[in-house]
């Protein structure tokens, strides 16, 4: 159950400041703010999808 750790308010404020100043991108801000929360299922599906696409990319492209 160790993953149920939310970011402390000070850290959230710090990230918010960094984002507003443009020191970090929205993508980075989102990931840091989430800190893995609510994201397990999405990442699991994404991993499956990435594996599938990589498998497909390894195969030779069809020639016509």
């Amino acid at each position: 159950m160790g993953w149920f750790r939310t970011l402390p308010p000070e850290e959230r404020k710090r990230l918010n400041k960094l984002y507003r100043e443009g020191s970090i991108s929205r993508k980075q801000f989102m990931q840091k703010m989430k800190n893995g929360f609510f994201d397990h299922e999405r990442l699991a599906v994404k991993e499956k999808f990435t594996r599938l696409i990589q498998k497909r990319d390894w195969e030779e492209e069809p020639e016509f």
Partner: peptide, 23 residues
């Protein structure tokens, strides 16, 4: 996936908002 990512991020913001309101 990008939309799902955005939704999960929004969930985290809701969680922090609820946390701050409760505090």
């Amino acid at each position: 996936d990008a939309k799902y990512d955005d939704e999960t991020y929004t969930m985290s913001q809701i969680m922090y908002t609820a946390d701050e309101v409760a505090a």
